[in-house]
C-alpha cells in the first residue's frame, strides 16, 4: 500500500481527461464502423487508412464552423450548457477506478483519482447533475423543438434515475459499502454479481442506456420526431461538447457495470486483471452499439410506462427479495 501524493492525483486527473476525451473521439469512429458492418456497409473509408483519420477531419470541421447563437436565445445559458454536460461527465469519472494502479517516475498514481467513501452515490449524483446540460440548452434557445427536447430530457432522466438507484441498492446491500473499491474486493472472494443479481443487472443496463441517451431510448434528439431535440440550434464545437459528454457517460456506465456486476479487476483465467477490465469495458461499449443497430426507437409514452409500471416495481421487489435472502 502506498501513500497517495497530490502530484499522483493530479497526474491521474490529467490522464482521465486526456484518455477519456481521446476514447470519446475514437468512439465515434468505432460506432460508425460497427454500425456500418452490421448494416453491410463499409462506413468511413476515405480519410486515412480504413477511415482512421476521420476523427481528425471531424475535429477540423467542428473547430472551423461558425459559433452560431440564434437571435432570441438566452446567450449566457446557451453558451455554458454544453460545458455543464461535458464537465459533469468527467467529474463523475473522478470517483471511478478507470485504470489500475501504477507507478511512474517514482510517483504512485492511484487507480481512482478520488477515493471517496460514497463512490457510487457520487457518480450517480454527478450523472444526474448532467441533466442540466440538455435541459438548459433546450430551454435557452427559444425554439419549440429544443423545448420539447428539454422536457423529454427531464422526464427521461428523472424517471430512469429512480430505476438506476433502486437497481444498485441490492448489490449495495450485499457488499455493505458504496465505495467501488470495496465492490472490487467483494468480487475477488465471491461469485460475479451478475449471477447472484441477474435482475439488478438487467435493470441497471436498461436504466444506463436511458441515462446515456442510447438509441432505443434517445427520445431527446430523435430526428424523426423532434428535429434534433435540445441540440437543434447548436453547431461546431459546442455541439461537439454534448457528444464528448455523452461518450464519457457511456464509458462511466460501462465501468460501473464491469466493476459492480462483471467482476471488476479480478483475473479472468489466464487474462490479467488490467486487461480483463479493459475487455469488459470494451464489451459493454460494443453492447451499446449492438443494441443501437438491433432495436427500433420507443414511443415516449411507452418509455414512461416501462419505467414506472414495470422496471420500478421490479426493482423494489428485487430489493425486498435480496433482503429476505440475506437475512435467512
Amino acid at each position: 500500500m502506498m501513500e497517495v501524493t497530490y502530484l499522483g492525483v493530479i497526474i491521474k486527473a490529467i490522464l482521465i481527461l486526456a484518455i477519456i476525451s481521446a476514447v470519446a473521439g475514437f468512439g465515434t469512429y468505432i460506432e460508425r464502423k460497427i454500425l456500418a458492418f452490421m448494416q453491410r456497409r463499409l462506413g468511413p473509408m476515405h480519410v486515412g487508412p480504413y477511415g482512421l483519420l476521420q476523427i481528425a477531419a471531424d475535429g477540423i470541421k467542428l473547430f472551423t464552423k461558425e459559433d452560431f447563437i440564434p437571435q432570441n436565445a438566452n446567450k449566457l445559458i446557451f453558451m455554458i450548457a454544453p460545458i455543464i454536460t461535458a464537465a459533469t461527465a468527467f467529474i463523475a469519472l473522478s470517483a471511478v477506478p478507470v485504470f489500475p494502479d501504477f507507478t511512474i517516475f517514482g510517483i504512485f498514481v492511484p487507480s481512482v483519482a478520488s477515493d471517496i467513501n460514497i463512490g457510487i452515490l457520487f457518480v450517480l449524483g454527478m450523472m444526474a447533475a448532467g441533466l442540466y446540460g440538455p435541459l438548459l440548452a433546450g430551454m435557452s434557445q427559444a425554439n419549440k423543438w429544443g423545448l420539447i427536447g428539454a422536457a423529454r430530457t427531464a422526464a427521461q432522466f428523472v424517471s430512469y434515475e429512480v430505476v438506476t438507484g433502486l437497481s444498485l441498492l441490492a448489490p449495495i446491500m450485499m457488499v455493505g459499502s458504496l465505495s467501488l473499491i470495496d465492490f472490487n474486493h467483494y468480487n475477488e472472494t465471491h461469485a460475479w454479481m451478475v449471477f447472484t443479481q441477474p435482475l439488478a443487472f438487467v435493470l441497471f443496463l436498461i436504466a444506463g442506456f436511458a441515462e446515456t441517451n442510447r438509441t432505443p431510448f434517445d427520445l431527446l434528439e430523435h430526428e424523426a420526431e423532434v428535429v434534433a431535440g435540445y441540440a437543434t440550434e447548436y453547431s461546431g464545437m459546442r455541439w461537439g461538447m454534448f457528444f464528448i459528454g455523452e461518450y464519457a457517460n457511456m464509458i462511466t456506465i460501462a465501468v460501473l457495470a464491469s466493476i459492480v456486476f462483471l467482476g471488476g479487476y479480478t483475473d479472468l483465467g489466464f487474462i490479467p486483471g488490467w486487461l480483463a477490465i479493459i475487455l469488459k469495458i470494451a464489451f459493454m461499449f460494443f453492447l451499446m452499439l449492438w443494441v443501437r443497430a438491433s432495436w427500433p426507437h420507443v414511443r415516449p409514452d411507452q418509455f414512461m410506462w416501462l419505467a414506472w409500471k414495470v422496471l420500478m416495481p421490479l426493482a423494489v421487489i428485487n430489493v425486498v427479495i435480496t433482503g429476505i435472502v440475506i437475512m435467512v
Partner: peptide, 27 residues
C-alpha cells in the same frame, strides 16, 4: 487495488472540477 492513504480524498474531485472548468471553456 487498495484504498488510498490520503487525508484529503476529495482532492481528486477538486482537481477534475478545476481542470474541466478551465479546459472546456478554453476549447
Amino acid at each position: 487495488m487498495t484504498h488510498a492513504l490520503t487525508d484529503h480524498p476529495y482532492f481528486g474531485v477538486f482537481v477534475l472540477v478545476a481542470l474541466t472548468g478551465i479546459a472546456f471553456p478554453a476549447t
